[in-house]
Every structure is written in structure tokens, then in C-alpha cells.
Nucleic acid binder design. Structure first.
Lengths: 350, 350
DNA sequence: AATCATCTTCAAAGCGCTTTGGATGACCGA
DNA sequence: TCGGTCATCCAAAGCGCTTTGAAGATGATT
């Protein structure tokens, strides 16, 4: 069923039917009702492509997700972010177009999407420091919203970020307050902006207390379970092993926990762990009491909000680009405790 | 830059330029080269919507991913599957359109996508037994490929599945061979087809050895870490706890492991665990030696292959729908071992 | 009764592409 | 010389929608 057929059935012109459906005022209210009824009755939906051609808008947003070529690694937070953004798009009648791209080929993909008119705007995932994609998108003239920020880029752009610096500073402070001094940082790849900022927060906190920053207690890589495990194993083998770990993601923290328990330690008693929890739907941090003490911020909510920001930007190009800085909350769970006094065996206790 | 502009620059008609670019024979080879050069030079890309309008094809595939409304739960294998399918689409010039939908609203979404002509076909995720979406898609006339199968539906359709039944039968056999008799099944939701089949394989194996099937050793729910943990905790508290666990996913197995280690047992010595490993990029099963003994099958590869199957189906509607049954391999890791001979008190037993 | 403003409605022109159904020569054999 | 066959190229129609510019109908105004 297309417009032409529908209008023939109704004995009206395409113009009138189109206007009736799109809520234009210059159509008799009775006629509009008649049209509306007929449209639902015949299950009419305007053809996306035709509508797009006529209006010049695609009513679609692209997500270009970079894939680490080396490990064919897709960021696990992606699914939940998409789910959140998808809600916003659905509410606003937009489609979501996804391209999974080897990092490096991205520029071509953006140009393509723009030139072919597939989308009206794009979400940029996984920004790096001085990320070249941002000036690129400005140059191309494709509206965008960044999930995160890019240190070093000072032109205004639309973004949503978690305050990673303050989150990790607070987490570090929390561990310092518990008496820990040898605090390890198991971080994401530090050319990624978020990881860079987290490290900044960690160092700020240490510096503020005069605790020396020891690069031997810092690791940085893709945030897999195995990476968490290996990092903890290595650092536990040191003459002066860390008494606490600050970890960049839940998955990574699971690896750290494995190492800790495999070594016969009790999490939260012998060794403390704080992680960042993106609140992924399939990786909830325990039940009532969180397993891990964690800085927490919903990546799904981030998806919802950033999508809104971008749609706003598209509908009003003149307004300055919006941005949102989310504060993560620190949830105290069972994975942290005061620095274990290496005094007599714990027989006295318990 | 559009066709009209490009053809003006070249001093040719739109027809000729179009044909040159699309590889039609009736254009002089010299002219074609001239066109090709000009096209790349001016960064020309045909407008997707216009092309779609003219050809009647969208050059896009939809993925409708159902979301458990209750828990806002998105299946974690989704990201990797998408990455695989995305590769195939990119290679074939297709876009990927994703809709995240509350389960229940799906029918409307499919009708919409079809009526609006947004896509040429769709991938159906998470099929259930007698899944009503399959007859629905047949009725609508929207080509589709199913990731999995739907028991109870006997009309031919295009699918790709892992042989879940044989995989879980083999895994169970493996545990039986090691001497285990009380083998727990920590399964996914059993109205999902894959979980149903896995349970079938598990029961087949037990039955074949005359081992009684004990529903007290079976759990079924969404495959989260917490679910794995709780299931194991509960079952370990039984008077005759399982000596081995067959678990439906890595994430779930992480929870089972947590419960086991928290109870002071050693994984692979005191208690065995076999899981299914979808080879998710961010959840690799250990390094050289897998942590978990697992039935293994790459969900990313599944994405690649199913996408190909669907594109084939779309390009040749007359051919019978293709399907692929992947066999999972059983990787022996460190989480399994022979039945521990009960040393002290339990020695009288059995 | 003629004029005008106000509602409604419509025909037709695009949006950028593919594709049908010719043109236009060049070349060839008769 | 002429019709016929190819090889190239083109004008124009059409895909399904929005939107511009106008026209008819109605009622109010003079």
C-alpha cells in the first residue's frame, strides 16, 4: 500500500493525504480523521526511502564501532549502549545503522555514510586523545555525538561522558582511607581517553596524600578477564605486592578476583578491589550487596541520553552542541576492607 | 556530488555514467575509465535512498533484537554476532539496521520494517520453541535467517545453529567418563530453543548410562553471573551436592566458579565444571590452556555465515532456504577432573 | 450582485537514481 | 548505393514521497 493507492481509495489527492498524515493544519479535521482511519486500516506506512529522498533527511543515525583488528575485539559495553540509544531512536522514529569497522578504515566509512546520505548523524565510540575523527567529522559536515571526550581537542562538540577522573580519584581516596598504600591500577588502553582520565584521577589522589606513584603497580591493556588475571598474578608476585587493586571494568575485575582467590587470599579481607561498573545487563554486580565495591554509571542510560543530545543537535543546527557529564556513584560492596594488619595470623579474629 | 553534476562535468548523460559505474557492457571501455576516474576524483557515491527507490531494494539487513523487558537484559553474545554479520554486509555493500525491541512488540516492528521498505531481509535472534515470528515473517513476505532453530516448526526456513544437543551430550559423556554421576545442569531459559536442545543432550547422555535424571540438579534462567552463583550455592547446600556442573555460558560459569571457590573447593579437583564457550572477544577462555573445559563455537563466525546465507536467499528467492549446523568442539581445560574419591566422612557412601 | 478573504483541495514539480526504448553513427555485405 | 547489424550513447519515464503554487468553494462584506 502506497500513497497513491491510498489516496485513490479515499478519493483524495496525494497532497491532501500526505498533509493529513503529517499533521499539517490546512486540512479539514473530518478529512484528516477519514484519512487516518483508512491509513491504519490498510496498514499504510510511508516508504522510508521515498520520504528520505523527498525531505533530504534519512531519519537514521549511524554507529561506527571500531574493532581492534588485532584481537577482533568488540567492546562489551557496546550492546548495552546500543540498547539505550535504540530506545531513544525508536521513540523518535529514527532507525539505527551500525557499521563495524577495523580501526583505521574509519575515515572512509564516515565519508561514505555522508556521501551516500545513509544517515543524518553519527555516534562516535571509543574516543582517543586528540582523536582525529572529530576534526574529520567537522570537515565532512556530519553531525555527531561522542560517547566520551577527546582530551586535546578544544573545538566545541557534542558529547556525553562519565566523570572518570573524579570517579577514580574518589575510588583511590576510598582505598587510601582504608589504609592502603600500595594500590595497583589495572587500566584500559591509555591512549583511550577514558583510561587516560582514570589514570589522572588515580594519580591525583595519590599525589594529594603524598603516596608515591609507582609505575610497577600499573598495567594497561584491553580490558579482558585474562588481562585482569595476568596483571594481578604478576603484581602479587612482587616482593611488595599491592594490597588493593583499582580495576577498569567488571570483566577485568573478575580476572583479578580469580588471581586473588587462586593465590589463597580472601577478597575484601586480604586484598581489596575496586572496579568500575558499567551496569551491563548481563553482568550485574551481585544482588543486594554488590560483590565489588565499584564506581558505577549505567552505560545504557548513557546511550539513551547521548542519542537525545544528538537528535537535538540535528533538529537545531544553530544551537551550540550540548554535552553531559555524568558523575559515577561509589557503591561499597564486599570486595574492600581496611588494610589487613600483617600482624599475627588471623586466628585472634573471627 | 550527485549523478547529474557528475555527468555534466563529464559531458555525458546520466544514463551512460550510471551504466559505466554499475558495470554494464553497453558503454565504451575508454568512457568507462574516464567516468571511474572522475567519480573517485570527485568522491562521488550514489545516494542510497535514490538508488533504493529506483531499484526497489534497500541494500540493508535488519536485526531485531528482543530485549527481556523485565530485566532490560540484552544477550551478551549480540555484540560479537553483529560484528561477524557486519563483516559480511560490508563486503557485500549492505547496511545493517538494528532495532532493539521489548519482546512482545516484535510483530509490529517486522511489519513496519517491511511496509516502510527499510530492509531487504532480517536476522531473527533468540528463537524459541514454536517461535511465532517465523510464520509471521513468512506471512509478511520478509526474507529472514534465524540464528538458531525453532523446534516444532516444520516449514523450511533459513537458519544457522550450533548442534547444541550433541555438544551437551558430549560434554555430559565427558563428565560421566570421569566418573561423575551427580551432574548439575545450569541452563538458559528453557523456552529458548537452544536451551531446550541442550537439556535434551544432557538427558540423552544420562539416560544412555542409566543415570537417573534429577530435576533437583537442574536450574534454568537468564544466563547471568549471579544466576550461576546462586544456582551453585543452592545445589552445593544439598545433602548430596553435585560433583560436576554443566553450565550454559561463560558468564554463568564465572558465577559457578565463584560459588565453588567461595565454598573452599578447588575447581577441577573437587568439583568439575564444563561450560559452553561462545568465544566472545572480551571473554576469552584463558590463555594457552583454557580455564574452563568447554564446548566451543564462535558466535562471531556464526554471524558471518548466517549473514551470507541470508544474502544468498535474498539474491535468489527461488532456491530452497539454506542452513548450516555447526558442531561445537570440546576443549578440555583445567576445570574438570576425575571424580574426587571422597576421602573422609563420605567414604561410607556409595 | 460583485468582491474578497478564508478554507480546502489539487496538479505538478522535484528529490537522485535506474532502466526502457529509442537515436546516432560506423561499419559491413550485397 | 542501400538496408542491416553493432556499438555507443541519450531522453525521458518512473520509484513513492513532500511541497510549491494555484484553483475551487464558501461565506462574509460592500
Amino acid at each position: 500500500m502506497n500513497l497513491k493507492e491510498l489516496s485513490t481509495i479515499l478519493g483524495l489527492s496525494q497532497t491532501t493525504v500526505s498533509r493529513a498524515l503529517n499533521g499539517y493544519p490546512e486540512v479539514n479535521e473530518a478529512t484528516r480523521q477519514r484519512v487516518l482511519v483508512a491509513a491504519t486500516q490498510h496498514n499504510y506506512r510511508p516508504n522510508t526511502r521515498a520520504k528520505g529522498l523527498a525531505t533530504g533527511r534519512a531519519l537514521a543515525i549511524g554507529h561506527v564501532i571500531p574493532m581492534a583488528t588485532k584481537h577482533e575485539m568488540v567492546n562489551p559495553i557496546f550492546a548495552d549502549f546500543i540498547a539505550g540509544a535504540g530506545e531513544t531512536y525508536a521513540r523518535n522514529g529514527y532507525d539505527m545503522v551500525i557499521s563495524v569497522v577495523d580501526d583505521g578504515d574509519e575515515a572512509q566509512v564516515y565519508r561514505n555514510l555522508k556521501a551516500r546520505g545513509t544517515i543524518d548523524g553519527v555516534i562516535l565510540h571509543g574516543p582517543r586523545m586528540n582523536d582525529p575523527r572529530i576534526p574529520l567529522l567537522d570537515e565532512i559536515g556530519l553531525p555527531y555525538g561522542v560517547h566520551g571526550r577527546a582530551s586535546g581537542i578544544n573545538t566545541p562538540y557534542c558529547w556525553l561522558d562519565v566523570n572518570n577522573r573524579s570517579a577514580f580519584r574518589r575510588a583511590t581516596d576510598f582505598l587510601l582511607d582504608l589504609g592502603h598504600r600500595r594500590i595497583a591500577l589495572v587500566n584500559g588502553l591509555e591512549f583511550m581517553d577514558f583510561a587516560h582520565r582514570r589514570r589522572g584521577g588515580y594519580e591525583d589522589a595519590l599525589r594529594a596524600r603524598g603516596v608515591p606513584i609507582d609505575t610497577a603497580l600499573m598495567r594497561s591493556d584491553e580490558m579482558t578477564e585474562v588481562f585482569g588475571y595476568r596483571s594481578a598474578v604478576e603484581m602479587m608476585a612482587r616482593p611488595e605486592p599491592p594490597t588493593a587493586y583499582l580495576v577498569a571494568s567488571m570483566i577485568c575485575a573478575l580476572g583479578v578476583r580469580r588471581a586473588i582467590e587462586e593465590a589463597g587470599h580472601v577478597l575484601g579481607r586480604d586484598i581489596s578491589v575496586v572496579t568500575h561498573d558499567d551496569m551491563l545487563s548481563y553482568l550485574q554486580n551481585g544482588g543486594d550487596v554488590p560483590i565489588f565495591t565499584a564506581t558505577r554509571s549505567s552505560v545504557r542510560e548513557a546511550g539513551r541520553l547521548l542519542a537525545e543530545l544528538l537528535l537535538d543537535r540535528i533538529s537545531d543546527t544553530t544551537a551550540p552542541p550540548g554535552h553531559i557529564l555524568l558523575e559515577a556513584e561509589l557503591m561499597v560492596g564486599r570486595s574492600t576492607g581496611p588494610l589487613a594488619t600483617p600482624a599475627l595470623p588471623n586466628s585472634a579474629k573471627d
